[in-house]
Structure formats: structure tokens, C-alpha cells
Amino acid sequence: MANTTKLNVIYGDVTLGLSGPGFHYIFAYDRGGLESLVRYGKEWLYRTPMPAFWRATTDNDRGNGFSTKSAAWLGADMFSTCTSVDVAVDGQAIPLPIAPENNKYSDHETADSVTITFTYTTPTVPATTVTVAYTVDGSGQMTVTAHYNGAASLPELPVFGLRFVMPTRATGFDYQGLSGETYPDRQAGGKPGTYHVAGLPVTPYMVPQECGMHMQNDWVKVTRATTQNNADPDHQPFSLTFAQADQPFAFSCLPYTPEELENATHMEELPLARRTVLTIYGATRGVGGIDSWGADVEPQYHVAGDADHEVKFVIAGVE
């Protein structure tokens, strides 16, 4: 998309602010990620997006011991930390612009594009890293690339992706992809199309587990009607679209994190749904189906720990 508008850059002491008409983003060095994504005055983030490694154990995962074998990724999903931040302006890397480095800037700095890259280190043994790079242009369009660096001897992953937790519960979402809940090894029956999903349904498996995956999407648009901003009385619906960059992605949009699902043995034990958990996946393990007491997912639907995985997508800018 041709873009001639300049991006305002705010070289703060603990954050990097990027803004333009209708959008304002804050990347926090101290929080280790994208802290604020505001469009048209509405905040879309509750906490910084983090790499996603875990899925709530399915009955088949439990039966074949996958969750035990891959348990390190539950820790990584909860406790990976940001270990470095890199900033590039108009394609040129610059030293991290905190004081005194940022003393040279003014309150009216601009750029054509800015890329900020967060590196997360996992608590696995051995450790590995995930880089999450955000490139923003003057329209506010944000291209996000999350890259997992494979490392020898790491167990297979349940999933790899980037998880966005939004401050309030969405009223629903629309997407272009396959009908229903699909997985790499269960998507032949999914019919391509554009679908609306009202609310944030959790598939009511008797024991709450991984659910709500959607494969092969061009885009997903999440719609909310509420914010946590005390000064925002407006309850008109507002939306944010995540679109494919160079290939379709998988996503799930649920009111719970995998850890919340993991912890419940019945639907009624799940907490009150109050947020939106959107995860965009670059890789996800199949669900399997031969039996539920040992049979593995077929080999082509595993996610190797020693190979790289990546997901790239675009968060729409303002028009």
C-alpha cells in the first residue's frame, strides 16, 4: 500500500511511541513488548503480546503423553521474558533510544517506518529465543513477524504463535477462512468462506481443552463494544483486523488463555469471561484421532522443537 504520510516518533525514556491520525502505539522497553495499540481512541491491549507455545491439553494429548513430553512449553508460555529490544528507523538500526541516547531528539520527530524487535528467551533447557518484530508505517499499518529459533533437543511444540490479550470481551469476530473448528489434520471438511462468530464461544468439551482453532485464514476482524477507559462512555462497536502478510495463518479467538482452560475439569470451573485472547499461529500440532490412550498424532502434523517456525501478519492501519 502506497503511503506518503509520515509517522510521528516519540523517543521516550522507557517507551517508543508511534502515532499518526487515528492511531497511537506504545512499545515499552520496560514491559518488553507492545504495550498499547490505540486506534480511534480505543485501546486493544491488556498486556503485551507474548509468544504462544502452549495449548490446553486435549484428551488425545493426555492419552499419548504429549503434554508430559512437552511440559517445558507450558513454562515457556507463561514465563518467557524479553531479553533484548532493537529499534530500526527507516530501515536503519539505531542504538536503543533511551537516555542519554534519546536526548538528541525533539517532540516532533518523524519517520517513514519504524521496526522494533523484541527478543524473548524461553525458560526451557536448553533455552531458545523468539523474536517478535513490529514494523509500522505512516498509516499505522503494523506488520508483525514472530520467529521461533529451533534448538536441538527441545521437545516438540504444541503450537507456536503470538498471543494478544485484549482488555474486554469481544462481541464476536469475523474471518475469512474455513468453517468450524479446524486443525492441520482436521480441516478437509472446513468450507472456505467468510464467517461471523457471535460472542467468544468455548467449545464445550467435557473437560475444557484446546479448542476454537481456525486454519487457513486471510484475515480475522475482532469486534468489541466496551473498553476499560473510564472516560470513554461510547459503546459503539469497534473493530481491528489482522490480515495475512504472505500466507494464510491460523488463529483462535477465545475468552481464555490456555492456562485457564488447562486448569478446569468442567466448563463451569472456567472463570467469568472478561477478556479476548486472540492468538495468531504459525504452527499448530494436529489433534490426532486414532485412539485416546497412546496413539500419536500423525508425524506430518507435529511441530518440531529443533526447527524454526514463523508467523507473519498485518494489523490493519487506519484508512
Binding site: 492419552g63 468439551y205 489433534v287 484421532g289 485416546s292 498424532v297 500423525e298
Partner: peptide, 15 residues
């Protein structure tokens, strides 16, 4: 009996 549909399952039916 095949394709044990316990919880979230029915993967790999094509095989």
C-alpha cells in the same frame, strides 16, 4: 471402532 472422538479429536481421518 475407530477414530476415537474423545474431546477434541478426529484428526487424520483421511488415512
Amino acid at each position: 471402532e475407530y477414530m476415537h472422538d474423545m474431546g477434541n479429536s478426529i484428526g487424520g481421518m483421511n488415512s
